[in-house]
Amino acid sequence: MTSDHTAIVTGANHGIGAATAEALARRGCAVLCTYLRVADPEDPGIPRTFRDNRAADAAAVIARIEGNGGTASAVEADLSDPATPVRLFDIAEDRFGPVDVLVNNATGWLADTFGAAATDRAGRTLQPVTAETWTRQFTVDAMGAALMIAEFARRHIARQATWGRIIGLTSGGQLGFPEEVSYGAAKAAQENYTMSAALELARYGVTANMVYPPVTDTGWVTDAVREQVANSPTLIHIATPQQVADVIAYLASDEAALITTNVITLR
């Protein structure tokens, strides 16, 4: 990857998104870091550090990238607004040039359930599934990601480009995501959109993949979560955001040209 590439990374003010923006910048990519500050309510099951991270802007991320000689800029934007993708691509092109790397990392994450429990196994507050929880989750994780892919594709094809990378992040699985049911369902929709993009855009030199991170400590991992991981037969590691970001950055490289239409599960 060279400085000829421009990336948009959504949800880049903290966690995996911030680490991905920094990893791409280290590889010479100009990065537009998009984010939306979220003021989460107090929750005894969620550390204050995580809530503070979600409420922060991306200034510290941009400072780290520029301090290491990289090129980046930040824009606050709400992906639940259908007009946002066009705006973001316009800004990225104006500042850095055509976008050929898209990382759909942002999420409208919340924990909702069909059951009667007030908290999940980690002690986080659960909400019942409602039209409001569904809308919050699907407008960002499904609609927002789909419209970002659509705008990427439209511009890529119009300029007759021959190289592109689309990477999304997912969670849940074939059996759903108990206690985070709308989150899991919205991510399943994003997976489907991304796989369709991989097949439809392959002729234009675009690869598209989803990354399924392990439990990743972005500030929300508590002792209860660590105990769950230790006792699980399938959860092996608690990753750092940087470990996940390195995989995403690889998928955005020339070396990953043959990797497409995959959900890459990290453990």
Rank of each mutant, 00 (worst) to 15 (best):
T113C: 14
R154H: 01
G67Q: 12
A19C: 08
T194D: 02
A77P: 07
A249W: 06
A202K: 01
A72H: 06
N262W: 09
L32K: 02
R165K: 11
V31L: 12
T107Q: 13
T216S: 09
F152E: 04
R154E: 00
Q160M: 04
W134D: 12
Y183V: 13
G115S: 14
D94H: 13
P98Y: 11
G108R: 08
A116L: 09
A30E: 01
A197F: 00
A161L: 10
I264N: 06
V181C: 14
V225W: 03
T216M: 09
G172Y: 05
E42W: 12
E191S: 06
S253R: 13
T265C: 06
T139W: 09
G144I: 07
T216P: 02
T107C: 12
A92G: 04
I65H: 05
F152N: 03
V140A: 11
P213N: 11
R87Q: 10
P41K: 13
E200I: 01
H14S: 09
M210R: 04
T10Y: 05
E191G: 05
T261N: 01
I248T: 07
T234D: 15
D112S: 15
M195K: 03
L258W: 14
R64L: 11
G164M: 00
A122R: 09
F138R: 07
A145M: 12
Q160F: 02
T71V: 15
A224E: 10
R51G: 03
V206K: 00
V247T: 15
N192E: 03
T139P: 05
D43R: 05
D90E: 10
A72V: 05
T107F: 10
L235G: 14
T234R: 15
Q190V: 03
D52G: 04
G108S: 09
P82Y: 09
V61N: 05
A150F: 00
L251N: 05
A150W: 00
H5M: 10
T34G: 07
L251Y: 03
V99E: 03
I238C: 14
C33G: 08
L199M: 03
L126K: 07
F89M: 01
V225C: 04
Q174W: 13
V244Q: 10
G219F: 01
G219H: 02
W134Q: 15
G108E: 07
A208R: 00
P233D: 11
V225T: 11
A245W: 09
G205K: 00
G173T: 04
R155W: 01
D100G: 04
N53H: 15
A249N: 06
T10W: 05
T135I: 08
A197L: 00
L88C: 02
G123Y: 07
G172I: 05
E227M: 09
T135P: 08
G17D: 05
P82W: 09
T218A: 10
S3V: 01
A230K: 11
I259D: 11
D223F: 10
Y250T: 13
A186E: 07
Q243P: 02
V247W: 04
F89R: 00
F114P: 11
I16C: 11
A153P: 00
T240E: 13
I46V: 15
A150H: 00
R26Y: 04
V86F: 10
I166V: 10
A23F: 09
D78N: 10
I238T: 14
T2H: 14
V225F: 05
G184A: 15
I91W: 01
R267Y: 13
E76C: 06
P85T: 02
R154Q: 01
